[in-house]
Nucleic acid binder design. Structure first.
Length: 449
RNA sequence: GGAGAGGUGCCGGAGCGGUUGAACGGGACGGUCUCGAAAACCGUUGAGCCCUUUGGGCUCCCUGGGUUCGAAUCCCAGCCUCUCCGCCA
């Protein structure tokens, strides 16, 4: 058996208090993969993942065969033990039966060990299989994202040269990237003075906005254990994208999605409580491995940024309606800030491992002359719920079902600040703030020297 | 960091190594009774997986491992919770 990295601890996928246990019930249902291998293979191909479905199926077949054998043996052993018990009660000599049972027990131990080893590998294989894209998701890669709608008007040419946010930020004393790098390395921005206040103002604006829509505010842990990171699908696939605290085997969260989605891991929720809406402001930490040399300047790609994340736990039947309303909720932020944006439906190849469908919200950066992703709004259907074992009971006496989980950024901050600086700049070098921010910025209308 | 205590079903709370998947109580649900309700009484009330079904079987009493023919019950490790002391934002 291959040696596993310390953060992979199958087969007990999730430990207490999750009451999880079942060897099955992770990610895509085993039975589902078994019965729909072609759909799963297609999904792997469409998502440009490398999971080996056939290897999974082969393991699954072997595992099932041994499982049946083991179960039969155990049934036999249980009967034998019962018989021994009866003999002892009657005061008869049971030594022969015990000797017999010993042989049985040994056989079981052997076979079950084999089974467990298979189970481990099977679980690994299963964790590597991505979620299926929803049927409404276009096929293709990044360039095949489908335009949904836009809002506001992009002023591509205001009549003077739009300067990139890092220049404005530096000039107005809002941003000090060299000193940020000094303390932590490049990609760790330092906001200063009104810049720092702007960050705080944006966070508060967003939280207030979403609270008004019924999102319950959370302040979650900023580090999570491997179970949580597996639950939402960051592990095992994207381990290299997260900061790992070796000594305590904890991960700095790349998004509040991880701690927030996992708060109900292992629980069976009362169906009457659904849907549940949560929001959390947290810093997010991303190693951005493999992205070096890309968007190196300014705030476009940083290792630490702030974000307000929206998370929903909903009835399966409602999840696509909930996706639309979650998207609308994220859009509200940009509308409140009067920032022009567009909505795109990601194509299969661009879809994250765990997502079934995803919209990106993009704002225009006059500084780099590009659309920038500022929010992703996704429906994971029951993928995360299976991994994290989050269920609900539809009604008294009915069987538990997996919830559907969704999340969306509402909205990611570093890029938002960049957009505000670039969109709000005036010919004189000041930056006009959106009116909605005034109450959060002490009535201030402009950022200036 | 030091010293103790403990983790059992929706909750409380039992559980000599062998009909305990789990006593007992509470709650919830269904029924009887009632004009209705309360009380009382009767009943029901965890999850996962496997097999061809009515049905049968295997797992699960924090997690993982061990002892045993057989473990919620014994042993080891870990995690978590609580109390006291120390330290610290």
């Amino acid at each position: 058996m291959a040696l596993l990295p310390p953060w992979r601890k199958p087969p007990a996928l999730l430990s207490s208090p999750r009451n999880d246990v079942s060897a099955g019930g992770t990610m895509l249902d085993r039975k589902f993969i078994r019965q729909n291998p072609d759909r799963v293979r297609q999904a792997v191909a469409d998502k440009r993942e490398s999971a080996d479905v056939d290897a999974f199926l082969a393991l699954d077949g072997r595992h099932l065969g041994i499982l049946q054998e083991v179960e039969e043996l155990k049934a036999e052993r249980n009967r034998a033990s019962e018989a021994i018990n009866a003999m002892k009660r009657e005061g008869r000599d049971a030594s022969e039966a015990i000797a017999e049972a010993q042989r049985l027990a040994a056989r079981i131990k052997e076979l079950d060990a084999e089974r467990q080893a298979l189970e481990l590998r099977l679980h690994e294989a299963q964790l590597g299989i991505p979620n299926l894209p929803h049927e409404s998701v276009p096929a293709g890669g990044e360039e095949d994202a489908v335009f949904v709608r836009d809002w506001g008007e992009v002023v591509a040419d205001p009549g003077w040269e739009i300067r990139p946010h890092w220049e404005i930020g530096e000039e107005l004393g809002l941003l000090d990237l060299p000193r940020g790098s000094r303390v932590a390395g490049s990609g760790f921005p330092l906001f200063v003075g009104q810049g720092a206040r702007l960050v705080r103002a944006l966070v508060n604006l967003m939280l207030d906005l979403h609270a008004a829509a019924g999102f319950v505010e959370l302040v979650p842990p900023l580090m999570v254990n491997s179970d949580a990171a597996t639950g939402t699908g960051q592990l095992p696939k994207s381990a290299e994208q997260m900061y790992h605290v070796e000594l305590d085997d904890l991960w700095l969260i790349p998004t509040a999605e991880v701690p927030v989605t996992n708060i109900y891991a292992g629980e069976i929720l009362d169906g009457a409580r659904l849907p549940l809406y949560y929001q959390a402001y947290t810093p997010c930490f991303r190693r951005e491995a493999g992205a070096h040399g890309k968007d190196t300047r300014g705030l476009l790609r940083v290792h630490q940024f702030d974000k307000v994340e929206l998370v929903k736990f909903v009835h399966p039947e409602a999840s696509y309606d909930e996706l639309e309303s979650l998207l609308a909720e994220a859009e509200k932020v940009l509308q409140a800030l009067a920032l022009p944006y567009r909505v795109m439906t990601l194509a299969t190849g661009d879809l994250s491992f765990a997502a079934a469908k995803c919209y990106d919200l993009e704002i225009w950066s006059g500084g780099v002359k590009r659309w920038l992703e500022i929010s992703s709004v996704s429906n994971f259907e029951d993928f995360q719920a299976r991994r994290a074992n989050i269920r609900f009971r539809p009604a008294r006496g009915e069987k538990p079902r997996f919830v559907h989980t969704l999340n969306g950024s509402g909205v990611a901050l570093a890029r938002l600040v960049a957009a505000l600086l670039e969109n709000g700049q005036t010919p004189t070098g000041k930056v006009r703030l959106p009116a909605a921010l005034a109450p959060y910025m002490g009535g201030r209308e402009f950022l200036e020297r």
